[in-house]
Write a protein that binds this DNA or RNA. Sequence first.
DNA 1: CAGGATCCCTGACGATACTG
DNA 2: CAGTATCGTCAGGGATCCTG
Lengths: 113, 113
Amino acid sequence: MTKASVRKNRHFNPTNCAVTYCMNIIGGKWKPVIIHLIRNNTNRYSLMQKAMPEASKQTLTNQLRELEADGVIERMVFAETPPRVEYKMTDLGKTLLPIIDAMRTWGKDYVNR
Amino acid sequence: MTKASVRKNRHFNPTNCAVTYCMNIIGGKWKPVIIHLIRNNTNRYSLMQKAMPEASKQTLTNQLRELEADGVIERMVFAETPPRVEYKMTDLGKTLLPIIDAMRTWGKDYVNR
DNA sequence: CAGGATCCCTGACGATACTG
DNA sequence: CAGTATCGTCAGGGATCCTG
């Protein structure tokens, strides 16, 4: 796995393409995967690590932080020992799901092309 | 403009996320913009340059070549002087348009959020 | 007009070690 | 368990010059 990392497009302004806004949100190498996992209740850090072992912990953390900063996911910390943290989609994040689904459907057809 | 460039995800295999296939196609910094331009008949090299002056000629060329290699767009050369080259969406490329549209719609709402 | 060739830079991402 | 800190790598993209 090497691509699927999109250099953020910081040139654009609102008169430019709105698509770029969207790309800047979901354009991380693992972000679509993370969104997909959280949606399917693979919503804890360690579970995500197992599900995508090629991504380093640092990278996983970074992508989670960015998604959180963009308001796509929410981080819920439980004061327990050992600590427990769960992630969930925000209402804004859920509006991205149709796009992710469309991409998945397209990707499957593309593979079978 | 700085982000919207997604490092291609080359780890994935068909058992992994199909979304990544899609991201690897449209995940270039300027690819969604290019697709949008071509669809709206801004289909010549010089016209695209004027429409997105922040992208260098080299970058524009590279992104066009990648889109062509992935079968998303088609390059048509006319044997004239000065040379004329036009780009058009392939049938496969057209199947991406609903995704681009969904992203644009989402992006507009996101900006006004 | 529509590139090709070359060189370079930066930031996304990875690897490893350590921690409350 | 769920990170943080640090450092390194690499490829996507930019800048400039040249060409059929």
